[in-house]
Nucleic acid binder design. Sequence first.
DNA 1: ACAAAAGTGTTTCCGTTACACCCATGA
DNA 2: TCATGGGTGTAACGGAAACACTTTTGT
Lengths: 240, 240
Amino acid sequence: MPQATPWTPPLIAVAVDLAVFTVLDEQFAVLLIERGIEPDIGSLALPGGFLATASEDLSAAAARELAEETGLDAAQVHLEQLATYGVPDRDPRQRVVTVCYLALVPGPLSPMAGGDARNAAWRPVDDIEPASLAFDHATILAEAVERARSKLEYTTVATSFCGPEFTMSELRRVYEIVWGRRLDPRNFQRKILNIPGFVEATGKQTVRNGGRPALLYRAGPARLVQPPILRTRTDDSSPQ
Amino acid sequence: MPQATPWTPPLIAVAVDLAVFTVLDEQFAVLLIERGIEPDIGSLALPGGFLATASEDLSAAAARELAEETGLDAAQVHLEQLATYGVPDRDPRQRVVTVCYLALVPGPLSPMAGGDARNAAWRPVDDIEPASLAFDHATILAEAVERARSKLEYTTVATSFCGPEFTMSELRRVYEIVWGRRLDPRNFQRKILNIPGFVEATGKQTVRNGGRPALLYRAGPARLVQPPILRTRTDDSSPQ
DNA sequence: ACAAAAGTGTTTCCGTTACACCCATGA
DNA sequence: TCATGGGTGTAACGGAAACACTTTTGT
């Protein structure tokens, strides 16, 4: 809180960074840009930027950056604040405090539809060398990945990775790919359907080659899952 | 990320606010100050302040504020970042972005030992009128309370509310008071002791009036609890 | 001896897992 | 009719809840 003296608080550049995740091509991927300017030129980095004006809201800045990078409206995706990073020398040029946001976007819909889609690309999170990331973005990314994984346990955000309509298999693949664990299709289906409001039946079903058609669902109104869907750590085997 | 143009990012005042909780007098309480200056003079507010210098780290600022208010060293308490609040008009004087921290401090140890202990006081969280709080602190407090309650489920932070040595009853009272639910003493004890590293026996026991002496424990090295200790919602009854 | 608080053992219950089985479509 | 993927039913397992019972102190 301020003081009655002529002392004034230090003024600092505030940035917003994004950890945008998707499930693309059977992999859990994050959107990274290749830096074209110093410092850390050539390194990979999370997309982001400074507040556009002194009166821009933090969440508005995050939504703006998301739209610039992916072309997606914030209403279509899950966007939540992750954490704030402000170690004094994290940017060598000046003191920067960055508020990081976590975004989960649907898979095939958003390769790079945005306008300002410069050198951004999806990278599988398991293939990223921590040392190849600029600033403290390796730390941020690690925390974002863990946040996303744990959010699948106790919320319904997994539907954010799917399109507006999806099958149980598609939803289950999201869990399997993000967690890197195989799940029993039959138990998974029962568990999801027993959680009120997780999904709603559309009445429609898929038309596909081979196999019985699957019922199509859309995301329901529920946001929290209780009890959580635990990644029990006992059931292993490769996810693919 | 910055641009190569002469454009410079807006500079903003960055503050750190604290939600300091304790279990005092059989109640879950938070440290609030009564504002002595405008705006919102006379309202209650979370303790906090601007960064002292342009190079002060965020967590260092939080630890400094905590020491000023309670006299406690950050090493003795649980201190973690909660969230950042930056709605443009949350402070009518100027644009302020506040990084909020959650602190959990032991009960009888810290009434107001700090030096700069002006008009700060512990208030039971259930007795606080949201409208009596300044700025957006009602929102912040609500999120901090929920964070503290859920942290008890999947971490060992409850020991932060106890002194260096404590009995099972004392630890259980922490859960009961924070959650507002009664817990079975016998099942609770077994559950805690079955979690490796949650507590360690000291070998000592209490000397008290009436009743069998209780074994004394200290906090163990474990930080995460898996599976979580769920507040099942089915077991009700008043906490006192 | 009795009250009070601490700690142990045991039964019951319920959600999860594992898995056998049936269904619907295309080739 | 067979392969493929979708969906249902059920027995077995395991952790948690409920609770009877024993232990150790003070008065």
